[in-house]
């Protein structure tokens, strides 16, 4: 390599350096574009797909549209939903949850054909968000259009239990105008989803 060539190279590198510094300098004086989270929040969450939540009936904000058919639990690739249907014979309202707990289970596939009578709201509806991959299969298959994605992006937990979300309680507390409890109030009432079950 001749001397003139190495001078040319050195000049080129120096020029690149100056141009680079120029670009950096221009951006240095521009306003910050980063959203600094705890003090600022993003405003584009309207179509964000957070975890699913239950949609209440139009006339009753405390009852979900859900008919506890179990199609969502069946369609979920990671089996993160567990739905407990009310007992088949209608009981007095007071002891319905207790009775449901005795008979409570994830509805097996075969029992879906037996069409339930009207207004069969589930007694329990749990989402294990730690397994969910937000694919939206549950939302798509729901015959009652009772599921939608929430915009809940600021979800913090300290254990796996914190991500077992009681969707019914969440919906009711939304109707009350309070924020949803992040963990089930009575842990023993939360059924463990049968994730180990083999696909049918």
């Amino acid at each position: 390599m001749s001397v003139s060539n190495s001078f040319k190279d050195a000049w080129n590198y120096a020029k690149s350096l100056l141009i680079g510094l120029g670009v950096t300098g221009k951006n240095f004086v521009k306003p910050t574009i980063t959203v600094i989270y705890p003090w600022q929040q993003v405003d584009n969450l309207s179509t964000y797909r957070g975890h699913v939540e239950l949609i209440p009936k139009d006339d009753d904000p405390f009852t979900p549209r859900c008919v506890a058919c179990g199609a969502c639990a069946d369609a979920c690739p990671s089996r993160c939903l567990s739905v407990v249907a009310p007992p088949k014979t209608p009981k007095p309202k007071a002891d319905a949850p207790a009775a449901a707990l005795v008979e409570g289970r994830v509805i097996p596939k075969t029992e879906k054909a037996a069409a339930p009578e009207k207004s069969r709201a589930p007694v329990q509806f749990f989402l294990d968000y730690s397994l969910c991959s937000l694919c939206g299969q549950c939302e798509r298959v729901c015959p009652a259009k009772s599921l939608r994605f929430s915009n809940n992006v600021y979800l913090i937990g300290h254990s796996r239990e914190d991500f077992r979300i009681d969707l019914l309680a969440r919906m009711r507390s939304q109707a009350d105008g309070k924020s949803a409890p992040s963990r089930p109030r009575t842990p023993e009432s939360a059924p463990v989803p049968e994730t180990e079950k083999e696909p049918a």
Binding site: N44, R49, S133
Partner: peptide, 20 residues
């Protein structure tokens, strides 16, 4: 995110269309 709902691991196409 506006049209798929997610920012990285999209699963927004469906058989015969798109989800949103």
């Amino acid at each position: 995110q506006m049209v798929t709902g997610s920012r990285l691991t999209y699963s927004s196409f469906t058989f015969g269309g798109v989800s949103m």
